[in-house]
């Protein structure tokens, strides 16, 4: 149901909601960037709609709300262990359409891919999602190519225009809270085109796995993992068992983000690692995003937010890599014919 209300009224509603929810949204962290006097847009708690950065794409995605960068799973001592407490409050997350599609990818991995991940589920079950519209495409976005420019899977859509707030609610709590607001038809802003257009090859033949094509990336990639860390669909983690330094009989197990580009990702017992070459790491990531995942789950993993292209310090373009790969696949097909 659509409503027109005011920022004052909406902030009051969020103030009430904050008793039961932590409210997360992309906000500006001044001077927080890699270089001096560069800001970062990333997720943090807000108490007022004015804190939300609507005008720019966030550098990091919402995923850290549901999959913290570092999360203690349980504590152990001698013969006992205790699971870490879940947050006392639920969460409300403001995010864009592409990221809502990213949420589906996270759900697929953590809820529908074999055993349910209880640590993910206990956060996910108590999280509400509020869609932020996109009036214009941002640099490097290719959501239209990935079909993620629109999403209906939100608890509410919210648009701030000066003192006016337009809401499309699918959440009974909000419907009740907005009973006195003016009903209005509200349709989420979404883009229909992006400057970046990506064409994904239908299938990538096995013969291209060792193609010289990947070697150039081996020379360019510095294995920093930024492309993975900003990606809303990268869900890999690793474990860290910690023994407290002043009492080695007690400790905790943490799970932390992992990156298939960073050294150590493929390390095995005995010191063997099977993707030492950075070009092979690029091949693994790219084909996971637009080939392997689809074979298994039916949709592409990549949601076209373009954050990997925004962040790469070596100016490696994932989008351009897919397009070049597409040309390569087509050329290979022609040769066979």
């Amino acid at each position: 149901m659509g409503y027109q209300t005011t920022t004052e009224k909406m902030n009051a509603i969020f103030s009430d909601l904050s008793k039961d929810y932590l409210i997360y949204a992309p906000k500006r962290f001044v001077g927080d960037g890699t270089f001096t006097s560069i800001d970062t847009i990333r997720y943090g708690e807000i108490t007022d709609l004015a804190e939300i950065e609507f005008a720019e794409k966030s550098d990091y995605s919402f995923k850290e709300v549901l999959l913290p960068i570092s999360e203690t799973l349980f504590y152990f001592t001698e013969n006992e262990m205790k699971e870490a407490d879940a947050p006392k409050k639920g969460a409300i997350v403001f995010l864009r359409s592409c990221d809502l599609h990213g949420l589906k990818r996270m759900d697929t991995i953590y809820l529908e891919n074999g055993a349910v991940d209880t640590y993910y589920k206990r956060l996910r079950d108590h999280t509400k999602f509020i869609l932020m519209g996109c009036e214009n495409s941002f640099e490097n976005c290719f959501c239209v190519s990935m079909g993620t420019q629109q999403s209906k899977d939100y608890d509410a859509y919210l648009k701030v225009d000066g003192d006016t707030v337009l809401v499309d609610s699918r959440w009974d709590y909000l419907d009740t809270a907005l009973t006195d607001a003016t009903p209005a038809p509200v349709i989420a802003d979404s883009v229909t085109t992006n400057d970046t257009v990506v064409t994904i090859p239908e299938t990538v033949p096995q013969t291209l796995f060792d193609a010289p094509f990947w070697e150039e990336y081996g020379n360019r990639c510095i294995a920093c993992g930024r492309c993975n860390f900003v990606c809303p669909t990268c869900t890999c983690f690793t474990m860290q068992d910690i023994f407290y330094t002043d009492n080695g009989k007690a400790g905790e197990r943490r799970r932390v983000w992992a990156s298939c580009h960073v050294d150590g990702y493929t390390d095995m017992a005995g010191g063997h690692a099977f993707r030492n070459d950075k070009g092979q790491r690029m091949r693994f990531k790219v084909l996971h995003k637009v080939n392997d995942y689809k074979r298994r789950f039916g949709t592409h993993m990549c949601i076209g937010c373009g954050r990997c292209d925004d962040v790469c310090p070596e100016y490696i373009s994932f989008a351009n890599c897919i397009n070049k790969l597409n040309t390569l696949v087509n050329d290979a097909a022609k040769e066979e014919n």
Partner: peptide, 17 residues
């Protein structure tokens, strides 16, 4: 020198105000 800040991929390291 800020090399840690420059090389951190997750903003764990940031600059002092």
């Amino acid at each position: 020198c800020g090399e840690c800040v420059i090389n951190c991929p997750t903003r764990a390291w940031t600059r002092s105000p």
